[in-house]
Design a protein around this nucleic acid. Structure first.
Lengths: 362, 362
DNA sequence: TGTTAGCACTCACTCATTAAGAGTGCTAAT
DNA sequence: ATTAGCACTCTTAATGAGTGAGTGCTAACA
């Protein structure tokens, strides 16, 4: 049961209006603002049909219509036109993202900040999942007689370290041997793989001719090694612009605001949810989000070295400017991926720097 | 103009009652609940005097009295009795804090989490300020032909690193020389000191006989070195239990809640404010906090290796259980400091493990 | 002189009533 | 098929009475 051209126009108009004003929209105001060449009465009839089909709802009998999740879904899939970023937003992204390109977590956090600033919504960013990261080398560095630093370096420049205090003394030579030994054993394997295999069999026992002292050192180091690997797998979540939602009428009731805020108190749960989402720009609307029933979630992925994948996203009410937000996120993630192509390089060309070609500043 | 014994009793009673119920307290209910041996009329007279002296306020003529900031101040300074932690809270702290003692930031964050859980308020924790941290050694590690890792290690086991990509190739030997050279130059100096001196004079130019290649390498590394030092100085702020305030009647209006939340959106500002506060348990009430006029802020300090100083704190309405919260924070920070005496050791005795001696579980 | 009982008065809060306004849904005319 | 007209519904804001908690004052009391 397809929608007629006119019905689509009306639906589009209602969505536009509602996204703008956050108030149920009536037939008369549609007729006035959008020049559809029909009277309010006709529009009323169409609206009634649209409601029957589930695209609109009625807060109460004598109120205007409000788009349903289904309507937004239709809009996003079929009606929405690709929007060009305003020159201002492009400039903002280009400038602000460039500034902090060498510190990884910093950059991600900045990106989230920027995103919430531009969209006026709550945003978040996840550092890349490193399951697939492979180990490059392992190093043990002396600090004092009993303290040393364990350092694990991944192929993509990821570095994690722990300071550990031993119960047994060690020599520089012992550290060198163990470092080399561990590097030989684990080099080229993914973190996931190493962790899994370590649980099953006590890897590394293939090393022959180990002195008692070395054995003791090894016994001291291995638990830390495992813990550090686990630490390396951890993904960081940054949230920005939470208070933005206080400006939106849908969160003017304290209960709604509380519910919203509490979603993010469970950072771990939220992180898991986000990691499960698909690649590219993904939009889930209202009911499509198990919890968060009256939110829309838009996520997008960025790449590091074309391999590791991180996520960035915004959360807001289902009433949002889908065209703008998706456009921003696409641009932003492209930009991020480009920045992370060569970690730490600082003189590559800025991607998508086609400023001034199209312009539609608000 | 001192307060009479009876006035103090009445003030104390009003504070107790108000802290409990968050509602203006009237003369009659005081007379009934607290056995002061005087009639409501007498209490009314005293209350009137207390109001004149600025210890109480009137929301409106026909309402009960509410303690003023001045009253809370008096209470904290003179009236409040040291409270013993409930056995339950002690156990909670001992157990939960022990679990994650080797990862620094983790532990701090856990402590904040715990604090907000026990107090039902919003809490935060700052990692230690490292201005006074001294450099132990600097290491440069090769990753591939053009990529290397710069690692700075502080005396207290603090480690920070960056991955940097060079424009010039290098050899292992060059790295060794430069590492050693930098270590010799900076070892034993504080981060602050190094950063300051580096701005004034280009340190390290005293090194003679440097080849052109070494010079280039050095030129590539130094900016990262400075940036990494700055990074090392950065203090991390963790906030927990923000949504707890939604359960408090003082934040039942959306505006109050918004204002509260927005305080923490400016993380940098907040961090600065907190760093400026004194050592030990510090309580600032209402107006004493420039912004945050109707909050009370309680902070306490913990130590790392008896030297570096970090902060932990709670924020809530001026109406709070000062005795309990300060007791908890004292216990918690002692515990933390003890945990951090030997970073990374995992078999020291648990401090303050005198469970069961006093008990007043709620 | 300090304490207390009594009482008038104030003010917030609740609840019901009313009126206004926006918008629908139906019907009949075009 | 479209539209004008109109009754009907429901929300929202404003008004006002009634209620109750609590004060402040005064006069009596020990």
């Amino acid at each position: 049961m397809d929608l007629s051209e006119r019905q689509l126009q009306i639906l589009q108009a209602i969505i536009n209006d509602y996204v703008e004003n956050a108030e149920p929209v009536g037939s008369r105001s549609i007729a006035k603002k959008y020049d559809l060449g029909v009277s309010p009465a006709t529009i009323r009839n169409e609206m009634s049909d649209l409601e029957e089909m589930g695209y609109l709802t009625h807060p109460h009998t004598s109120a205007g219509r409000v788009p349903s999740d289904k309507a937004y879904r239709l809009y996003v899939n079929n009606l929405m036109k690709k929007k060009n970023l305003s020159a201002r937003d492009k400039r903002l992204i280009n400038e602000r993202l460039q500034a902090s390109r060498d510190e990884f977590d910093q950059t991600i956090r900045h990106a989230a900040e920027l995103l919430s600033e531009i969209t006026h919504l709550t945003s978040f960013a996840l550092t890349p999942a490193t399951n697939e990261e492979t180990i490059s080398f392992i190093r043990l560095l002396p600090v004092d007689e009993r303290t040393l630093i364990l350092m694990i370096v991944g192929e993509s420049g990821n570095v994690t370290n722990t300071t550990l205090r031993l119960k047994v003394p060690y020599t520089q030579e012992m550290l060198d041997v163990l470092s080399k030994n561990m590097t030989v054993t684990y080099k080229g394997r993914t973190l996931d793989d190493v962790l899994r295999s370590h649980i099953i069999e006590d890897v590394g026992s293939d090393i022959e001719a180990m002195s008692a002292a070395m054995d003791a050192l090894r016994g001291n180091v291995m638990p830390s090694f495992i813990r550090t690997l686990e630490d390396m797998l951890n993904v960081n979540l940054y949230m920005e612009g939470m208070t933005n939602i206080f400006n939106l009428p849908e969160y003017s009731s304290i209960d709604r605001a509380r519910d919203f805020m509490q979603l993010f108190a469970q950072k771990d749960w939220f992180t898991q949810k986000m990691l499960q989402r698909g690649d590219g720009v993904v939009v889930t609307i209202g009911d499509e989000n198990a919890k968060m029933k009256d939110c829309t979630l838009i996520t997008a992925t960025y790449h590091v070295d074309g391999k590791l994948v991180g996520k960035i996203g915004v959360i807001g009410p289902t009433r949002m400017k889908y065209d703008e937000v998706t456009a921003i996120m696409e641009y932003l993630t492209n930009n991020l991926s480009e920045s992370f192509r060569l970690t730490g390089s600082s003189d590559s060309e800025q991607p998508g720097a086609d400023d001034g070609s199209h312009e539609d500043d608000k």
